[in-house]
Design a protein around this nucleic acid. Sequence first.
DNA 1: GTCTATATGAAGATAGAC
DNA 2: GTCTATCTTCATATAGAC
Lengths: 205, 205
Amino acid sequence: MAEERTAPPRNPKAERIIRAALRVFLEQGFEGASMDRVAGLAGVSKATVYAHFDSKESLFAAIMERETRRRAQAIVPPMSIDLPIREALKRAGESFLRFVACEESVRTLRVVAAESARFPELGQLFFDSGPAVTWRALTEFFERAADAGQLDVPDPGLAAEQFMAAATGQSHLRRVLGLRPAMTEGEIRKRVDQAVDLICRAYQP
Amino acid sequence: MAEERTAPPRNPKAERIIRAALRVFLEQGFEGASMDRVAGLAGVSKATVYAHFDSKESLFAAIMERETRRRAQAIVPPMSIDLPIREALKRAGESFLRFVACEESVRTLRVVAAESARFPELGQLFFDSGPAVTWRALTEFFERAADAGQLDVPDPGLAAEQFMAAATGQSHLRRVLGLRPAMTEGEIRKRVDQAVDLICRAYQP
DNA sequence: GTCTATATGAAGATAGAC
DNA sequence: GTCTATCTTCATATAGAC
């Protein structure tokens, strides 16, 4: 799993290769993607692609790792103990759901899951840069809420998991299987509202 | 997407091809699998494989469809209104979780999700033969429980979804990403218990 | 139906010129 | 660094004999 060989920042060709490769891999998967197509889409020759990346494997690993880390910054769960419980949960839930329900997340999940045997570190990175971030923030939130006597939560980590799962529901699986279009903003809000109701009723003091 | 050309029931060669193809596709995915490997594992020549199936696509579709339908029979959610609420939910939840958490389901999900664009019907079949079965049974169960005044469930379909999602949690995603081994029987029981607690507390009359 | 042998094309990777 | 041209391997699919 070699890295990029050149300095990435300001090379326009390198940048084009990276963007093209991301698109091709997310559309076709690792095996389905071809280096010819990457080169064609980037507008460079295949040899140029190989001048920047040692192999198809290293290109894939570098691209996916870069993209996963980059997108992790999109989850900024604004968990504040200052807000009312329901409002704080609502914001975190919506931020999370917007993240996992977007087209890029769904495509990335499909590819990373399919290649989990060949690229094990990628699965870990995907999870750590996504759901794990929200889970940690929510767990701390439930701990504070329990300490403050606002909620009766014996296991904050469990409550965080249940909240995320309830918000996600079956819709995400159906989306990953290609059975439905992306969630609308209205649907996201509705699903999160329902999850907030569930958690608040179950864990009311 | 042609079907098998021969009568499937009692041909030992056909049976061997089907078993080999299932294994190869679930291990390598559609693109990663090769007809050579299928033939080799089945102990027949490649030409024999093509005598039974028109193409790699039709072999894949036939295999996956057959397997999905076959395994759907493993979910028999024994939902009885005679049992206490908690016990009925527990049984249905454990049956469902055993189904989705097993090795075959996880591998099938990875492959079907990855190929959802190329084989759209397969995603639908996977969902209909799996989660949808449990969801319908649970929804009816919650309807009856609400009618009987045993639970205060305004939206039975939502409650069913929340229960399934809570039982599944993040563990399933982590499993699909290759980050953890299969759930133990003890873990299944524990997770379902926690989901039952959540639902019963949230929807107590 | 089943085999061996092969046609055909695609894809990963590289050589060598500029 | 970048290109064109090419090497090599391997995969889908088929021809033709038994």
